[in-house]
Design a protein around this nucleic acid. Sequence first.
DNA 1: GAGAGGGTAGTCAAGTTTGACTACATGCCG
DNA 2: CGGCATGTAGTCAAACTTGACTACCCTCTC
Lengths: 213, 213
Amino acid sequence: MSAIRLLVLGAVRQHGRAHGYQVRNDLEYWGAHEWSNAKPGSIYHALKQMAKQGLLIEHETAPSTAGGPPRTEYEITEAGTEECFRLVREALTSYDQKMDVKSAAIGFIVELPRAEAVALLKERIRGIEAWRSSVTEHYVPEDGPEQLGHIGEIMNLWIHTADAEAEWTQGLIGRIEGGAYTFGGEGEPFVGVLAEGAENPYATGERHPGDAR
Amino acid sequence: MSAIRLLVLGAVRQHGRAHGYQVRNDLEYWGAHEWSNAKPGSIYHALKQMAKQGLLIEHETAPSTAGGPPRTEYEITEAGTEECFRLVREALTSYDQKMDVKSAAIGFIVELPRAEAVALLKERIRGIEAWRSSVTEHYVPEDGPEQLGHIGEIMNLWIHTADAEAEWTQGLIGRIEGGAYTFGGEGEPFVGVLAEGAENPYATGERHPGDAR
DNA sequence: GAGAGGGTAGTCAAGTTTGACTACATGCCG
DNA sequence: CGGCATGTAGTCAAACTTGACTACCCTCTC
């Protein structure tokens, strides 16, 4: 699962109806261009793709007031909303160690009811633990781990990473159960979109030192 | 940087000369089909691509003794060897939180001299720390992290992950400095390839529960 | 008032990845 | 002996990603 579908679908959903550039701006606002493949081409591609699949409806609209080519608005459908939730749930539940998917999922976690979020995260921990023990069992030869040589360090890395993530997930569960944040159906939601015309404090610009690529 | 080039180039290098199916088998032996995009199409594509770029030389050979289409052998060139080392060094040094690249790099780390491996890993830790502080500085608004709402959890995850990785890297440095494993130029190397005709104990088959995809 | 600069909105070709598919040979079973 | 499974080696179209590019309009400055 690539993060782009989730990000784009989620962004459109928060507006109800949005054009590509708006999505692109939201994602930039979230810093997504730094930690995911949210580049113009991918975003427009994903929009068209999901329109073709019936998750979004295309609306041609008049040229924008602010210059540039005519823009296309996308409206989310019933199926799109379902898919969006399905993607969030899947991303939260399954352990696949991809930062971009995880980050996107956390971004949308508050759309779910609080109890479900906790349940999914607990499921995630179970998944991590299952994965962990299957690695230790499956990849350690009978005659001791030394047989693996330095390759054992790869397993070591995986275990270390899995443990760190389980720990973090546990912490998040604690905070959510402790009442942090505002979840789906709990009144005034946290809105993570840019108002029409607002300036973007995190606009494209400097990269962090040590950035990938 | 995608892991596939490093994996394929490294696999060919360990044989000196290998055909696609052999590479494919080695990668499976390493479990790479589980944690990277090492699928047939990608492997053959990478081989052709790198041949075109002068990192490998293509040799047409007679049909195999064991049936199937005629196979193409690839021999690594001088430039290919250099590129291989460059990729390992880059993957070890730069913090980009991609499991597949990291895992591949560890697989080949022993090709380097021990002192260089340690130096690169220390560089990696510096990179992680730089990235960490740039995240904390850049993404925390002046009026306190609460402003971010649940989005702050994304930063939290990143920090947690970065810390875990720094810790693991530190541990690895310790083990290497303590004399573990056999590094480049230290005599009998660890050979991670399948002998011609050997059976593969880790052949494709069961997936781990909770696997991505 | 010409033109530089910047924001808006999106396209495109080239490259990469995916996963299903082909084609051939051997071994085995009844 | 027919046929089916298995192993070997690789191809292919479709989907996705990349990043540079177009085209338009507004504002500011000289």
